[in-house]
Design a protein around this nucleic acid. Structure first.
Lengths: 242, 242
DNA sequence: ATTGGTCTTCTGGTATGACCAGTTGACTAT
DNA sequence: ATAGTCAACTGGTCATACCAGAAGACCAAT
């Protein structure tokens, strides 16, 4: 499969650079940003690019900008939204932040069973069929990366089947974070990806509209990955991404 | 208490308008946006303002913009992050979207007990003290709105105490959504806000590092609001915000 | 009939330079 | 000590060029 090449515009670069400095603590909460005109000069770009970047920082809850005053850095832990996860996942030096990965794995383990429960209660035929089809495809492949692609598609359907829009949006945010460590995940999560037994039971439970069983098997299935990931995280310091 | 007046710049207005059109379905996924130059003319603003707005739409996962090609609308259910919640909460006409409110309430009920559990396991003195202090303040007031303010602060500390950064960011996103219906919430959640009994037990459980009890009482406490909210949501159609 | 160039004309991306509009703080008159 | 004033910041808006990728029409060559 081919996918569109993502090009980076100048304002994107400025945004990434500033975001990294803030999330990395190089720019601490309370500090003020250089003026837009100064930044232009420092970065060698025009003011429009800087403004586009700062507007995005503002939207991300990273800075507080006020007309006439200076732009100050906010504490992202108090003001940032879940969409920061992807950028938090990797340090500017390309290492993975352990506590971020741990947080996500833990959140996943906590939310997904409840989502599966909701999905089973609704039991929308449309999503159920997709899930069954994806499960079948998973049973017919042996490649870890392909399994992972299918697994993500499976969970996307399951989340959609829960009918809960907040879950869907949170899932999107989390997937963007996962994407940052895609290949690392494919190997670490392998025991989970190959536990098609529990995935089948989960699918079955949803088909039978058995909410409690769905919740149970979802939890069982995910525990594979949760444990594997925690083992890896405990074993390594800041892991290099491959 | 006074808080800074939020002024709306032109690009903010453009962003809000386009976002509303997309979330409301007026601009459907797959459709293309008018060119930047056309939009300038249509809206009677400068191109820079339009560009800042579109950059933000892009960041929010609402559009796909590519150099040389047209900007197309994406399906926010597949690409939007949790930070869309605040804008989804209210329709352009100022009504509350029931399914969004329901989704958030359900997500809260599912996540918070696990967060409380994690918080109890860590039992960070710093956050625990804050929580105890806030609880005391809550016990000394009778005003619903002030109770709500304190309750939010309490949960903010609890989430911080869980040591899970993903939870914190998700909490921030959800609070921004809550803020949109702040006054409505203060009345609907009143039974929860006044159930200081369970909140005290929760605090106690955390102090005693009793994770399971913390999880239990958090769930009990939140059920007040969950049930109240569901009752209201079932009773009304699209509620007016007051 | 298909493939691959090429040219025109769309689209978004970048760059200037000017000016408007709040904020801040130093200075001044009271 | 207070309140007014003003100059010098800051971000916000604007108009106008021009650069660069994409898309489609067109036209060869195969």
């Amino acid at each position: 499969m081919f996918q569109h090449i993502a090009k980076q515009s100048i304002s994107d670069t400025v945004f990434d650079q500033l975001t990294a400095k803030i999330l990395d603590g190089e720019l601490d909460a309370g500090e003020t940003l250089p003026g837009e005109r100064s930044l232009c000069e420092l970065l060698g770009v025009n003011r429009g690019a800087v403004r586009e970047a700062i507007k995005r920082l503002q939207q991300a809850g990273l800075v507080d900008v006020r007309h006439g005053g200076k732009t100050t850095v906010l504490d992202y832990l108090d003001h940032g939204g879940l969409e920061l996860l992807p950028q938090l996942m990797i340090t500017p030096e390309g290492k993975m932040r352990l506590e971020v990965a741990r947080s996500i794995v833990s959140m996943r383990q906590s939310m997904a069973p409840d989502i599966a429960k909701a999905c089973a209660q609704k039991r929308k035929a449309k999503h159920l069929q997709q899930m069954q089809s994806l499960l079948t495809q998973m049973q017919q492949t042996d490649d870890a990366k392909e399994l992972q692609t299918l697994a993500f598609a499976y969970w996307r359907e399951l989340v959609a089947g829960s009918g809960n829009i907040a879950y869907r949006l949170a899932f999107n945010s989390m997937q963007k974070a996962y994407d940052k460590i895609w290949s690392l995940l494919a190997s670490v999560l392998e025991p989970e990806l190959r536990d098609l037994d529990n995935l089948e039971k989960l699918t079955q439970a949803i088909a039978e509209q058995d909410a409690d069983q769905a919740q149970h098997f979802a939890s069982e299935y995910l525990l594979n990955g949760t444990n594997a990931m925690n083992a890896v995280l405990n074993a390594y310091g800041q892991a290099e991404i491959k």
